[in-house]
């Protein structure tokens, strides 16, 4: 059956027609063209399709599109939009070798974000627990865990620098962005 749903996708209120049996993954990839969310297994066993719905990491391959009615959905495409620059988690994955083939990366980053938004100081055990549902075949996880730890430190620091004023707790402040740009030039 077709119905119309409204929800907030990466900060934008949108309204679209869906079929009842569509998964959120189908809606994002096939209908809305947001190809950043990946399908690795279709059964909730690899985490490549992870998105955040109302602050919770979920497998979009098992989540019905109809169920996002009235909710906030964040996908990998939504992380860098506010500033045009990379989110600290994305930047950290880039800087610390957390990305090889990259297919698990969007889901991995979304799982990390759901955790670090709540607790940027999460210890390694907590990070492993939160990321255990995201399979990576390339990295052996070592540099992914490093990336998440470094991102957490950066996010905690950003919060300390007053980013709390920003809407999205993960958004880079102008101040830290300038500093970042400065680092690149020198």
């Amino acid at each position: 059956m077709t119905k119309t749903i409204s929800f907030i996708l990466n900060g934008d209120e949108i309204s679209c027609d869906i079929q009842d049996h569509w998964t959120l993954l189908h809606l994002l990839r096939e209908e809305l063209g947001l190809i950043g969310t990946k399908e690795g297994c279709g059964n909730g066993e690899c985490g490549a399709c992870t998105v955040i719905v109302d602050q919770l990491a979920v497998n979009s391959c098992l989540y019905l599109a109809a169920d996002v009615q009235g909710k906030q959905v964040q996908t990998i495409e939504g992380l860098a939009v506010h500033t045009g620059s990379l989110h600290p988690i994305q930047q950290s994955f880039v800087d610390n070798g957390g990305i090889q083939c990259g297919f698990c990366t969007p889901g991995m980053i979304m799982s990390a974000k759901a955790l670090l938004d709540k607790d940027p100081k999460a210890d390694q055990e907590a990070v492993k627990h939160a990321l255990a549902g995201n399979i990576c075949r390339c990295t052996g996880y070592v540099q992914i865990l490093d990336s998440v730890a470094a991102a957490g430190r950066q996010m905690a620091k950003n919060q300390g620098e007053g980013a709390a004023a920003a809407k999205d707790p993960g958004t880079i402040t102008q101040q830290s962005m300038n500093k970042k740009a400065g680092e690149v030039i020198t």
Partner: peptide, 17 residues
């Protein structure tokens, strides 16, 4: 850093899918 890492981190890399 890997040259294509930022693209991949943003979900912009295009795979066969």
């Amino acid at each position: 850093p890997k040259l294509d890492a930022a693209q991949k981190a943003m979900g912009r890399a295009e795979y066969i899918q």
